[in-house]
Design a protein around this nucleic acid. Structure first.
Lengths: 167, 167
DNA sequence: CAAAAATACTTAGCAAGCTAACTAAATTAC
DNA sequence: GTAATTTAGTTAGCTTGCTAAGTATTTTTG
């Protein structure tokens, strides 16, 4: 019924730089958190790794954590090196696989983690101001769909030729 | 009426790493476009600058373009240097303000721009697959609100102490 | 079971955002 | 009208993502 409207709206949308907006929000988000946790010697990549290791559970391998974070191994290796250097984490040998390392919090890491959790929840709360749970839910769903679309597109390698209809 | 539900949902949301999801989508978006336009010697920052200059209109200053892009001047300076080097853009002196430069496309830049517009619209179309215009609209609105919340938070400088309620 | 392929991790170097600190011109203030 | 401040742009160097290429195991395969 609203097909024509949809088509018109869709065409208009294709000109809007949504990707930039997403990037901007991400940078602002990062800034807000970095400002809040810098007294803990934490940067975005560091606290992110800490929190996700907590979610995954101690003993996870670097590979598993990279997967969880959605980043590549080299990016994570660097950050973990810093966290080990800061005495937040330990790399212990994997019980059966000599290639792999398992990740554990140090006592100092545990303490920092507690503060991080509190801190990041406060920030999220501020960022969600005036947003309904439904809106946040919707945001996550839409982003998830876009993420899957992007992965599909990239998997098709020659992304440029994915769509050629005139619309 | 759904206050209790809302509160429960809200608490749950505060634990979800939405910031990471946003970052992930941004990186995937960037990858998809980079893959599509690399034959034009374009990277994300370059094509972004080109498209936004087009939107702003030729003759814009670097300051205006940085504002439009939502990035800082030094980030833009580097990218513009590359685009001038690649013979896509020209920096011309501002008619009245000797500090400022005005930006213009070269003929080669114009040609590249045309291809870029087509290319990025195709990619956006692929990324919006299975999304309704309403969902995209909602996404932009929610992101916009979060962007404003983040700016407010950052403007309060001591972001850490912004909220202290127990919740 | 030895050779080939895959996997966990690392190192090196690029991309594009940022802040801090600088110059030169314009504006404001006294 | 000069002095102080602001603004446009740059340069230098940090962060954190990436890919490419290398090592050491593990797994697969012929």
């Amino acid at each position: 019924m609203t097909d024509i409207t949809n088509l018109t709206e869709m065409k208009a949308m294709l000109k809007v730089p949504l990707g930039n907006q997403i990037g901007r929000v991400h940078r602002l988000w990062r800034s807000a958190i970095t400002a809040a946790v810098q007294s803990l010697d934490m940067t975005e990549s560091r606290w992110t790794a800490m929190l996700h290791l907590k979610m995954l559970g101690e003993g996870a391998t670097q590979q598993a954590l990279a997967q969880e974070l959605g980043i590549e191994m080299p990016s994570l290796t660097r950050t973990l090196g810093q966290l080990v250097e800061l005495n937040m984490l330990e790399r212990r040998p994997h019980p059966t696989d000599k290639r792999a390392h398992c990740l554990y919090f140090t006592p100092a890491g545990q303490q920092t983690l507690t503060k991080l959790i509190e801190c990041t929840m406060q920030i999220r709360q501020a960022l969600y101001r005036d947003l309904t749970p439904a809106a946040v839910q919707q945001l996550m769903q839409t982003l998830d769909l876009m993420e899957r679309n992007a992965r599909t597109l990239l998997a098709t390698t020659s992304a440029a030729t994915a769509v050629e209809d005139s619309l």
